[in-house]
Design a protein around this nucleic acid. Sequence first.
DNA 1: AACCTAATTGTAATCGATTACATGAATATA
DNA 2: TATATTCATGTAATCGATTACAATTAGGTT
Lengths: 342, 342
Amino acid sequence: MKKKTTIYDIAAKLGLTAATVSRALNNNTKISFNTRKLVLETALEMNYEQNKLALALKSGKSYNVGVIVPRIDSNFFSSVIRGIEEELYPKGYHVIICQTHNQENIENEKINSLVNVQVDGILMSISNANLEANKGLNKLLKNKKTPLVFFDRKKDIKGISSVTIDDFKGGYDATKHLLDQGCKRIAHLSNDRNFEIFRNRYLGYRQALLDNGIEFDESLVIETQSNVQDGRRAARLLLDMEAPPDAIFSSSDFAALGAIQEIKESGFNIPEDMCVVGFSNEPFTRFMELTTISTVDQFPLDMGRKAAQVFLEEVGHTEDVKTTQNIVLTPELIVRRSSSKK
Amino acid sequence: MKKKTTIYDIAAKLGLTAATVSRALNNNTKISFNTRKLVLETALEMNYEQNKLALALKSGKSYNVGVIVPRIDSNFFSSVIRGIEEELYPKGYHVIICQTHNQENIENEKINSLVNVQVDGILMSISNANLEANKGLNKLLKNKKTPLVFFDRKKDIKGISSVTIDDFKGGYDATKHLLDQGCKRIAHLSNDRNFEIFRNRYLGYRQALLDNGIEFDESLVIETQSNVQDGRRAARLLLDMEAPPDAIFSSSDFAALGAIQEIKESGFNIPEDMCVVGFSNEPFTRFMELTTISTVDQFPLDMGRKAAQVFLEEVGHTEDVKTTQNIVLTPELIVRRSSSKK
DNA sequence: AACCTAATTGTAATCGATTACATGAATATA
DNA sequence: TATATTCATGTAATCGATTACAATTAGGTT
């Protein structure tokens, strides 16, 4: 195991200086044709590879970006990350991933950790609903050294760009669609509405009801986590009501699935007795055999790509020219069996 | 946007040397209680954070590892990566992800790229079936500077550790199970058998047939990619045979799903007319309403964790003590509706 | 012959840390 | 009192690149 060759090794071998070697390798200033040729050949021969770490220290650019997500093993987040990686790699960047598992202190810690390894930017889907508690994020915002781009789960912060989908529209369209199917009492499985995304889906749901003359009923909104079990529990509650709903708009596909399971096992039919619409277009919603699940596509791949593009623009500019972008993608309602009465 | 504070800034402010500051911060050698206290306070006050890039250059350790996978947006790979991240972060490492999309030249390129940013190791699921063509990998193997650990898709290379599952056993158990259900003509949807994983599943399948007195029939083995469409196509071929099979063991859950769809649409019943077993335990296999899909669990989270542990052991040792580990996890057959006749 | 210019290459600082070795002061020992 | 020892800190090299500035050489001009 010999050490990697450096420009000093090449210089020594050729009786030159590291400076000359560096210049020759970079095709930079006027280097005579002969020495350039010689250096290039020798570099090849000695298996020289540029040490990007040294370059990063010197230039102040690490060409690494950090991506922070609650978890990576969900179709949504891994698709976003795919988009980010595919967009950034061709520009010379590497993607460092961090998971928070929705824990504030971990998020805090990972932000600091990324800053310390000198990432050129951070793209994150924030886990931490209350901003004040997040010291890492606050520090980041305060000294404005590292560009930050939110995707999906964002916070409204002046000067910080974001790429999200129009969750309000997603909620509105889903609800409107259910109304169009003739549903009158539409329940909503929400999630922590301290997050903009869940609040907006909820608000879209309410607005659609309002616009169509249906009175909003607080008792039809149930807070659930994004998993099958919670969906089941919520459906149970709804079915046991004196006046059960005739439709459910769930802010999560997993909760929608749980609800569907519970409803069917209770002897009801979908969509005849109850229409269901989920959110995210997880692969399994399409694969169901009887009741393919209507849902809202968030275009995670595009979201990742866009977030990466916004980052690239921000690092490209000097800080005084920087413009804040708040890009909002348009979601698409995908109507499937679980909400198609006709 | 002011610059980040360095130990020189602290030193200047206190009339000390960077060396002293460094020592004080590291609690290292004998530094007087007073100056240490002073330095620590000042560091806090000036928002000092260690520049890991400088440290990495000096120490030769970047505390970054590269993870190379065909793609990240599949449940299997994202779960492995989750395991890797969770295991490595507490030890101070960051995870850089790279996707190859099964393209040899990209794999090649990304290996080089990771080496250049001085990763401390590479964990990869190899995309490139023929080793000789992969210059990047060969260079990596030749100078043995960067520890390499294969997971899932490996190549047998002397001195290179790996973490895989026992694909032979997976294939064997699945096939044996189908035989136990009374199936006599069992087809196999394989995949490129230049990859060990697919070859081993295939070999396990053959051995199970052999051990149970069933003659192997070449025409029942169909090569498919891991997607729904290819599964459909394969099932169509099988159904159109003069003597169609009565069971399918698919090396992919997605192909299994496609096959199931095609079979059902052709008017056959599962599992009565045809038993089906997939591979990977993708989430949707559990979520099916009528025909939950039998499959083989590969424990991706454990695989990622183990791969990370192997890496940690390898970097921990000096190179002469290093021992090669080839860890083989045991897969678990999960019997569901698609293959349960009784 | 004296001077100018352009073409190459070298010198040395820099990025931000760590650390072997040196130094000076204070204290302990003989 | 002279010397040895310890303690605390400074000096300077190092990791591997880049780059402003300096220096050298060759050739051209008058």
